[in-house]
Simulated assay, not measured.
Amino acid sequence: MSILKTRFTEAFGVEHPIVQGGMQWVGRAELAAAVSEAGGLGLITALTQPTPADLAKEIARARTLTDKPFGVNLTILPTISPPPYDEYRRVIVDEGIRIVETAGSNPEPHMDLFKEHGVKIIHKCTSVRHALKAQRIGVDAVSIDGFECAGHPGEDDIPGLILIPAAADKLTIPFVASGGFGDARGLVAALALGADGINMGSRFMCTVESPIDEAVKKAIVAGDERDTELIFRPLRNTARVAKNSVSTEVVRILNEGGEFADVRELVAGARGKLVYENGDVEAGIWSVGLVQGLINDIPTAGEVVRRIVTEAADLIRGRLAGLVAADPVGVA
């Protein structure tokens, strides 16, 4: 049963205004299905799958775990050898997916096929100006990523407390707030600031169904809000990752005038994948947000969703409602 109705839940046909972030190596069928089964919106990460055919199999696997709506994240990044985006798009459409989260580059070249087949598009943005452009080109919703987020926060360094209401003042389409969210207090705050829901990555990464090694989850629980590192700042391609010996070395090299070639081997995606597979949190670069300072357990994804929406409703009905005087004196 829907406890909190927003423009996002109405437009995307989900019970609760909670979206699971599309995380590389993490957004697999078991996690996406668990989030959706609990009434949120789970996302399979397309490029975690080695080929478009593998993505089709992963979608089919998710459908054995839930009959509720789930989506696919398609991250579009400029690269020397781009993946076959057109084939991944075709699989998404052919498999009957009706919700796509795009991220990275401008989604416009990818939208015609999706729109033709009734696919709703959520585009992840790190600034109000990018969100307004996404709205102009016709996306159905945006996800606003504040500076607190894991992964790429953009180069403006604007935290959610400012970015979310700034977006609310200018957008007319629904939007969800991302970066720094992990509990009911965050959801209530996001709604108060004008968002229609929240997107959570690190919180869902630290759940039973998250397909990463238990040692990584325990590291998130043990970590606090100070235990992240901003890498690639001098290259203006900032990324927030876990603080470890590798990320600290990357920062040192680049701050001393090094170039990407000097850190290429340290930040290789294969090394980061091994962190998740083997649980050696010092093996490479891996993403986590400031919100790890609020993560103290490893529950099921369903428990996360239910706990957040129930506690959020209690906060709104209880503590916040109780702050308003029944008959304010002197208020016109």
Results as ranks from 00 to 15, higher is better:
V305L: 02
G272H: 10
V288G: 12
I298P: 00
V281D: 04
G302N: 10
D280Q: 08
I295L: 09
L294S: 13
V281Y: 07
P299T: 05
Y276I: 08
E277D: 15
E277L: 15
E303C: 03
V291P: 04
G284C: 02
G293F: 08
V288L: 14
A301E: 09
D297C: 09
I285W: 02
R271L: 13
L274Q: 15
E277H: 09
G293V: 06
D297K: 14
L294H: 12
W286I: 03
W286T: 03
V305H: 03
L274G: 07
V288M: 14
G293D: 13
Q292P: 00
A301P: 02
I298N: 03
G279W: 01
L294R: 13
L290A: 08
T300G: 05
I298R: 01
G284P: 04
D280R: 01
V291Y: 04
T300L: 07
N296L: 05
G302H: 02
G293L: 13
D280F: 01
V304P: 02
I298H: 00
K273C: 03
D297M: 11
N278Y: 00
L294V: 12
V291Q: 09
L294A: 13
S287G: 04
V291K: 06
S287L: 11
G272A: 11
V275E: 13
V275N: 08
K273P: 00
D297E: 15
A301T: 01
G293R: 07
P299C: 07
V281G: 05
V281P: 01
V281Q: 05
L290H: 05
N278T: 14
W286H: 06
N296Q: 12
W286C: 02
A283R: 11
L290Q: 15
T300P: 03
I298Q: 04
V288C: 14
Y276E: 09
V281K: 02
E303F: 05
I295C: 09
G302Q: 04
G272K: 10
N278A: 13
G302C: 08
N296P: 00
